[in-house]
């Protein structure tokens, strides 16, 4: 019988079961279900927004109907929460079991697969069909937390080198500036360019925050794997659809994560017939411009510094009522991105 895992005791059982299977327990999830036999928990799985994770089934129940029961419960629960498509990251050995439950593989890697339930990717692409441009196109994937002169410079230089430039703004709302603000500031900041299109990344940019690591071994390089899956997803599904043959990224002197990502781009995109181009970052007084510096300056209310780092459009927003409201919260915000 599958039921939600709620009581303290059940929660502890679930955690122990996950760990017995050599998996890692993760604190963040929206719902957790368990399969119980005579009051004993024999299997469990969880949902974190539209990602299913922490599947753990005791060996004697593997290969039976338990996986289907757990997936049914997660789907029902996720549907009620308003999601239409669901993702699962699993080791390649479990990929077939999920495919038997109508999950479709999006990306296959020797350490992890990403599968999707539902038509999310197809719909994402179909609804953007009218934005497809012929020719030699390029892409940047940006978070823009918030949009700076550095982003503007990167986008201008990239747009000058291709027929059309797609700007994917990372949808996921775990940055200080909410998605609609980030998106709007990009729109305003590139309004003077006529060969660019701004796109919402949807669920199709794998970020470090959504990427569940429960099934990986302690010595696996989590961050690298997440970046590789993200690039494979881009190269396999997004790029061919939009005729993207060049992906641009700014040089990165400080942030190691971005630098590693850039290195992966150089090795992983060429096999797909794509080029990865690094562009020199734009400098201002006190070094290269970054959104991190903007947030730091905002926190100190150093508006003259901010003015040197962001375009007029972003500055106007920051000084607006909504912008000032957001800044009040910035004092407590510590994340690097």
């Amino acid at each position: 019988m599958v039921a939600p895992v709620i009581g303290q005791l059940d929660r502890e059982q679930a955690k122990a079961l996950i760990e017995q299977q050599g998996l890692r327990f993760e604190e963040n999830f929206d719902a957790q279900f368990g399969a119980f036999e005579d009051g004993r928990l024999v299997a469990t799985a969880s949902r974190d927004r539209n990602v299913f994770k922490m599947f753990a089934i005791t060996p004697e129940y593997q290969g039976g109907s338990v996986l289907g029961e757990l997936i049914s419960a997660l789907l029902q629960n996720g549907h009620q929460a308003g999601y239409k498509s669901f993702f699962v990251f699993t080791p390649p050995t479990s990929s077939a079991s999920f495919q038997a439950c109508n999950f479709r593989p999006l990306v296959t890697h020797h350490k992890a697969c990403l599968l999707e339930f539902g038509n999310g990717l197809k719909q994402y692409l179909n609804s953007r069909k009218t934005l497809v441009r012929p020719g030699h196109n390029g892409a940047v994937v940006v978070n823009c937390n918030p949009f700076t002169l550095g982003h503007q410079y990167l986008i201008e230089s990239a747009a000058a080198r291709v027929d059309h430039l797609y700007i994917f703004v990372v949808r996921e709302d775990r940055s200080f500036f909410p998605f609609d603000v980030r998106y709007r500031l990009v729109e305003e900041g590139v309004a003077h360019l006529d060969n660019v299109t701004i796109l919402d990344s949807g669920d199709y940019a794998v970020s470090g925050v959504t990427f569940p690591s429960y099934f990986l071994k302690a010595d696996d390089d989590l961050q690298s794997l997440q970046m590789e899956l993200d690039l494979l997803l881009f190269a396999k599904h997004l790029a061919p659809f939009f005729n993207i043959s060049t992906r641009f990224i700014g040089t990165e002197p400080y942030c190691r994560t971005t630098r590693t990502y850039s290195e992966f781009m150089q090795t992983m995109l060429p096999p797909f017939g794509m080029e990865a181009v690094q562009l020199e970052r734009c400098q201002a007084e006190g070094g290269v411009i970054s959104a991190f510096r903007v947030r730091q300056a905002l926190r100190k209310e150093a508006y003259e510094t901010v003015r040197q780092l962001v375009p007029e459009t972003t500055f106007r927003f920051l000084r607006s009522e909504d912008g000032l409201e957001l800044q009040k919260k910035l004092v407590n915000y510590q994340r690097r991105h």
């Binding site: 109907s65 289907g68 049914s72 549907h79 439950c101 109508n102 038509n119």
Partner: peptide
């Protein structure tokens, strides 16, 4: 929603829409 993802069963999701859309995954 109705049904399950058990073997030999099917799961159906229904939403209001202005036209008839039937999507089948099997």
């Amino acid at each position: 929603q109705s049904g399950t993802m058990q073997s030999s069963d099917l799961m159906i999701f229904l939403e209001p829409a202005d036209e008839l859309i039937i999507e089948i995954e099997s």
